[in-house]
Write a protein that binds this DNA or RNA. Structure first.
Lengths: 260, 260
DNA sequence: CCCAATTTGTTCGTATGTATA
DNA sequence: TTATACATACGAACAAATTGG
């Protein structure tokens, strides 16, 4: 026996909200808002489908269609027999969704990260534009070196809006147990959902060349990434210098799932 | 009044085929096979959902789930009130699914293509591996120059398995009305469904530098693309040299649709 | 311009299968 | 074993877009 649950307290019947929108989309928005407002934290289970359907006063099929889209966007994860959970960042997700450098022979490997510098400063024009800040707004700048097979391959310069990362200190980065995005999520309630990347070839500047142990002027890829959270809000700007002598920057196009 | 249609002639009842597979997936496979075998050509309408469901002896809901996945993979396109159509390559699809260079200010533009060379030759090791051929197998090599805003930006060297492109002649490429992938599809029954791209930074070689009007040795991005058709069969190998002085190689991550 | 037929899109409700604890 | 949860499948009804008369 089980207490009839509390989904009714969490969600109001929909309908009124939907303006020309299909019902399942209105349900999706409501669920999205609940997750965004942290009424369900990463790792939490959502109420069961039947409960949610009852709370929203929609059929199970409609509720499922809403959850289908959230699952396709990696915002929730479904596990048959267990429940539906708010997606949590982990090494696997980083690897397959956000890490795009692999060995030329195709082998993928988790990078070993070394923090080089940490400083509080003010947004320059590039960072301000990417993060939708004003020039001079306070930001945190992090410089990382990523190694693959012990060899330095990526030099990252990361810019974070200080307003979103209150209390971020060098220690928290050094002593974090998992990935940086796990720290964003667990430590600051910021979930990175997707990212835009633009790459170009440049000659390695002196700093990156020294860090990566290559000749200054060697051709490297510069990747500028803007990481987005809910409502496409930018939460991180990152410039990566990638030594592509033994590694590639990969781009798998159009994989809406398995293509069996 | 309408003749009861011929879907019954095209498809047999499913069930027997499915071995541990969900029914909707067996239906999907059957539809996929029909499209792959060109029983429905690109641009053709599939039979109506009700017809297909009747032919397969499944419910409309099950049929819809199968078609949902095909639509998500861009293999078919649905149009409310009109029907479901086998996807056809066009400039828009090229632009959004396969063309990843855009101006640094974010503006996208269709490239103007100039054919530089066309020759029949034999696969080298790189091409053979990418195309799953043996070294020395006959291939067609095409060299293209792509301009954006009149300025040369991309130098393509394309390798095609001659066995798949019987009768391909320089004229057909020069006189094609649309994109190269449209020619593959309309002229040779080869549909490019997705592609894998690996990029690295290199110093421009003398040939590409001259073609692109840049200094030899300037840093450029080299993109190696393998285009895949049904069952992930490789049908094209392409090495693109991209001048990223004014343009970027873009990678939009995790966009399973709109994120509203 | 409107109407009717056709087709996909949305929603409902129910029943059964399968994985998990 | 039992209960719970998601996964699959069915069938029906209505909405919305399109087309042609």
């Amino acid at each position: 026996m089980r207490i009839p649950s509390d989904a009714g307290e969490c969600f109001a019947p929909i309908a009124a909200v939907s303006a020309g929108m299909p019902l399942y989309r209105a349900v999706k928005r409501a669920l999205l808002s609940a997750i965004e407002e942290a009424r369900f934290a990463p790792g939490d289970a959502l109420p069961a489908e039947a409960e949610l359907a009852a709370a929203f006063e929609v059929s199970v099929g409609t509720l499922r269609k809403a959850v289908d889209e959230l699952a396709a966007e990696h915002i929730v994860v479904r596990r048959q027999g267990r429940g539906t959970f708010v997606a949590r960042h982990d090494a696997t997700r980083l690897m397959f969704q956000f890490f795009h450098v692999e060995r030329s022979d195709g082998l993928r490997e988790l990078p070993a990260v070394e923090l080089l510098t940490f400083q509080r400063t003010r947004a320059d024009e590039t960072a301000a534009q990417a993060l939708q800040l004003r020039v001079g707004d306070p930001v945190v700048e992090i410089e990382n070196l990523l190694r693959l097979q012990g060899r330095p391959v990526i030099h990252d310069r990361i810019t974070l809006p200080a307003a979103l990362f209150r209390g971020l200190a060098e220690r928290r980065i050094r002593e974090r147990p998992g990935t940086l995005y796990q720290l964003y999520q667990a430590g600051f309630g910021i979930t990175v959902l997707r990212a835009l990347e633009r790459a170009r070839a440049v000659a390695a500047d002196r700093v990156s060349a020294r860090v990566l142990g290559i000749a200054a002027g060697a051709p490297v890829i510069e990747v500028r990434r803007t990481a987005l959270s809910f409502s496409d809000r930018p939460v991180e700007h990152r410039i990566s210098i990638v030594d592509t002598a033994r590694h590639d920057y990969v781009n798998v196009l159009s994989r809406p799932g398995a293509v069996p």
